[in-house]
Amino acid sequence: MKGNIMEVSAMNCHHRFYTLEDFFKSAHENGFRNVELWSGPMHFYLDYQQYDDIQILKELEKKYDIKIIGVCPEQTNPKPNNMAAKHEDEQKRVYHYFKNAIDIAHFLNAHQVVVTSGWAYLSENLEEARTRSAQMMRKLAEYAQIQGIPLAIEALQPRESLLVNTISDLKDYLELVNHENLKICLDLGAMAKANETIKDYFETFGSRIIHCHFVDGNPVGHMAWGDGNRNMCEDLDILHQYDYQGYLSFEIVNQMYYQQPHLADQKCIELFNQWRPK
């Protein structure tokens, strides 16, 4: 972000059948200056014990003149990295997994690590799972603050988790965690699924919103802009009106883009470049 002009970042989710360097090369050719790193193991391996050589990422940044502005670790079912993990050994693994993600972001001088509440088993008490999640999140927020990395939590859709789906859920969760280093990632997919708006988010959280997963949908789907029913210019105007200061990441995850992911990114950035603030 430079001044009050919003900037976008590409994400590698839909580039999963190409190499990480293919993704960086594609982002550079499409005119991106920033990317958000999703920790898909086919691109950059990360678990609770280890992670790939960060120097690889630094070399790609330098070679393609692109900055990694954030880290988005894998963390939804069936991934093992559940913020609401139930058993002690599992909780230890989850803590060290996210600790490693925070360390990677620190070494890269990134702006944030995106997190979620995790998920509960459908046969257990949701409040107990939410409490476990908040306790884990507080520990990680404390560690991330030491490392100078904010955590940005996004709501999830009900098919992913029942713990935090709405603005009201996010408010309650922030109070439960009670740590200033936990911020908000506005995910337009989860927002649309909850029948909420960008205005609703900013009226509730204001400057605590530090990141945005900026995608089209019908109303959801994490699609490239132009393939859903959202109006990018209207959304950008609202973000501009609220003086949004974070990045807009094109978190495209729909499998329709796996064969030619660069074309989806191209559509997004071309539409963004046509927008001019009112």
Results as ranks from 00 to 15, higher is better:
Asp187Pro: 00
Arg159Ile: 14
Lys267Ile: 07
Leu248Pro: 02
Ser161Phe: 10
Asp237Cys: 00
Asn165Ala: 03
Gln49His: 12
Glu180Phe: 04
Ser207Ile: 04
Leu271Val: 03
Thr116Tyr: 04
Gln266Lys: 11
Asp235Tyr: 12
Tyr51Thr: 07
Gln145Asn: 08
Cys268Glu: 13
Lys63Asn: 02
Leu182Ala: 00
Gln260Arg: 05
Ala192Cys: 09
Ala120Lys: 13
Val71Ile: 15
Cys72His: 14
Ile252Glu: 06
Asp89Leu: 14
Leu57Gly: 02
Val215Ser: 11
Tyr97Glu: 11
Gly226Pro: 03
Pro41Val: 09
Val35Phe: 06
Arg230Met: 09
Arg159Ala: 08
Cys233Phe: 14
Cys185Pro: 00
Lys86Thr: 10
Gly246Leu: 05
Met11Thr: 15
Val71Glu: 10
Cys185Phe: 00
Asp52His: 10
Met136Ser: 08
Ile210Phe: 09
Tyr97His: 06
Asn12Ser: 13
Glu180His: 15
Val253Gly: 08
Lys58Thr: 04
Tyr242Pro: 01
Phe107Asp: 15
Lys86Met: 10
Cys268Gly: 03
Phe107Tyr: 12
Ser9His: 06
Ile69Glu: 13
Pro78Asp: 07
Ala134Met: 09
His240Ser: 13
Met42Lys: 11
Glu160Leu: 04
Gly189Arg: 04
Tyr97Lys: 10
Cys185Thr: 07
Cys72Pro: 01
Pro150Gln: 11
Val113Gly: 07
Cys185Glu: 11
Arg138Ala: 01
Thr76Arg: 13
Gly221Pro: 09
Ser161Trp: 08
Tyr95Cys: 00
Leu46Arg: 08
Asp52Phe: 07
Asp169Ala: 03
Val94Asp: 02
Ser161Ile: 07
Ile209Val: 15
Pro150Cys: 02
Tyr173Arg: 06
Tyr51Arg: 09
His28Pro: 02
Trp225Thr: 06
Pro219Ser: 07
Glu270Ile: 00
Asp47Ser: 12
Gly246Trp: 06
Leu239Asn: 02
Arg130Ala: 09
Ile210Asp: 13
Leu20Cys: 01
Lys92Thr: 01
His240Trp: 08
Glu142Asn: 14
Ile198Lys: 09
Pro219Ile: 12
Gln135Val: 08
Phe250Arg: 10
Tyr244His: 14
Asn254Ser: 13
Ile149Tyr: 10
Val8Thr: 15
